[in-house]
Design a protein around this nucleic acid. Structure first.
Lengths: 338, 338
DNA sequence: AACCTCCGTGTAATCGGTTCCATGGAATCG
DNA sequence: CGATTCCATGGAACCGATTACACGGAGGTT
């Protein structure tokens, strides 16, 4: 890993380092002659610009940090992918971190990103605005929230319309005749978890659904809590006729339990999932889901962070959700309606 | 983004920058007194070490590059996740890149990673060893291959036993009585694509399966090519009684087509997928798959790259695959056996 | 011919850390 | 008690780029 520096290039080209630097970074004030000679020399020596040195001098690293909770979640994988691609198109690198739904690890990651002096961050945040997140913001670090926000923290964000999503799903279930609807909630440390739960509660009130507190299971956006929730809900003396799960991983968990117990989805039990993961089309019956658009979210987030970096003011965006009705929802099981 | 530098800290603590640096980077030759004062000053000023500056001086960036083909592929998402977590545990950052199964983009990413002076790279490579990959290696950059390798390129790798995986699956199908087996192959630009196809051919010879060349569809590890392959295979005058797909995304494609056409998997058609994605358990019937262990792969890759960086010699690892038999494979449809 | 622009170029300072080397005081030893 | 060792410390060079500033030559104007 010996390094060819710009000095070597300059020497070989017979020019000063200043000229070499100007040529290599596309500065206009260079003659055709030196441009040619420097390019040639750089090629011959296999010169690779040292981004560390450049970053130190300029105060831009051309790198953005991406903090999501877990790339193994297809929703965040999609976001991470589009963010990386959009950034690459602007020849920026992306530093990826997973917080694993843990505030401690989120802090760890944020500290890492600050120390790496990323130009900006795209964050799916968690917790209240305390800890490293507060530090990051008071530092003046450009941040854009994606998918989630934090109450009282004024940061541009691109989210989706969680309340509308749940409301649509609830209306759909109401129209089918359901009155007793189980809900596997997301962690209340996240804005999405909170908003969706609130929307569920509103729907319960609006449609006059059963208000039995046992119908809500507090999960954590992980598969295991979906399993747990499903077992509890299905184990109730009077089980729900439909279940709504607040994210894709918990939906998987619910599906798994239904599979294992031989619960026939669509007839015995209606199920609505959150996030339109490709595989939700493939299970049978295909899943009715509240879909949103992580790719668009990611792309928009990059656009926003670039705008912030360019000094422009940006406004938050709330993307619509769509209810995709498939076979997993149907009229409630007549035996259960009583 | 004004910056508190180590000079500010030193001034406030009433020591020299040398001492401040020693304290902040844990150098032993420091007195308890200055340790206390420097730590205090750093805390009060909110000092954040500038990793760029440090990297410039040391010749380590404490960053590793991760180049996979697509994080939206659950297999690579798992690898990316474990790599990131293992790296974080060693307080290293990870620069993530997606090559999208394109050699051009792979080159772009490699150039980016070199310019960022990552300490080492974990790469799921593609193509022959030409282009930027050759440059990277001649540069002396520590590289570990993961999942895939490149013929004639001597780089430590952690892969899985592709041939055994396919062989097991083929034997399983043979035992069930299948003789005509469709194969949706991976891109021949990847070692996994090649090895698995070779193993399929070997199995055809060994078990005396039909050798009709139409039974092999050349795919590219993407969902769309699985769809294409399934349509072609199922559209044959004499369709196969079983299909083997060389990765999870193509398996999704095949599943999708079967779903759409109402093909009953497990009876009308047996299906074996590659990679044990969580959702393959959930489709019904659950999918028989060739499973391997991306988490272990990722963790091992990090271990290996750290060993390489520590100057130790490392040896490549080949992890075993397991055939997980579920409901998607059964005896061939009697009507088709003729 | 004298003057002014304009433009390409080189010198050197700079970014924010790390580390070699010299120094001086305290502790240890003969 | 003088010599030696040890150790914390500070000064300054250094990593590899960028860029402010000064300079000199070519070309244009009056």
């Amino acid at each position: 890993m010996q390094s060819v520096t710009i000095r070597d290039v300059a020497a070989r080209a017979g020019v000063s380092v200043a000229t070499a630097s100007r040529v290599l970074s596309g500065h206009p004030a260079t003659s055709a002659d030196s441009r040619h000679r420097v390019d040639e020399a750089a090629r011959e020596l296999g010169f690779r610009l040292n981004a560390q040195a450049r970053s130190l001098r300029k105060t831009r690293t051309n790198t953005i940090g991406v903090l999501v909770s877990d790339v193994r979640n297809p929703f965040f994988a999609e976001i991470a992918h589009t963010v990386e691609q959009s950034a690459l198109a602007a020849s920026m690198a992306t530093l990826l971190c997973n917080a694993n739904e843990s505030t401690d690890q989120q802090d760890l990651c944020l500290d890492l990103l600050v120390s790496q002096r990323v130009d900006g961050m795209i964050v799916a945040p968690q917790g209240d605005g305390s800890g490293s997140l507060r530090d990051v913001l008071t530092l003046g670090m450009p941040v854009v929230f994606v998918d989630r926000t934090i109450d009282g923290v004024d940061v541009p964000s691109v989210t989706s319309d969680n309340r509308a999503g749940i409301a649509d799903a609830a209306r759909h279930l109401a129209e089918l005749g359901h009155r007793r609807i189980g809900y596997v909630a997301g962690p209340q440390e996240t804005s999405t978890g909170r908003e969706r739960l609130l929307a569920y509660r509103d729907a319960v009130a609006e449609h006059g659904f059963d208000t039995d507190p046992h119908l809500v299971h507090q999960g954590d956006f992980q598969v295991a809590s979906g399993v747990e929730g499903a077992e509890l809900l299905l184990g109730l003396d009077e089980p729900p006729t439909a279940i709504l799960a607040a994210d894709s991983l918990m939906t998987f968990g619910v599906l798994q339990v239904c599979q294992d117990r031989g619960v026939r989805i669509g007839s015995e039990l209606s199920l609505v999932g959150y996030d339109d993961i490709g595989t939700f089309r493939l299970v049978s019956p295909a899943l009715t889901v509240i879909a949103h658009d992580p790719a668009r979210m990611g792309a928009l987030a990059v656009e926003m962070i670039r705008d912030v970096l360019a000094g422009e003011t940006v406004t938050s965006a709330v993307l619509p959700t769509t209810l995709v009705v498939r076979g997993s929802t149907g009229a409630p099981d007549p035996r259960r309606i009583a």
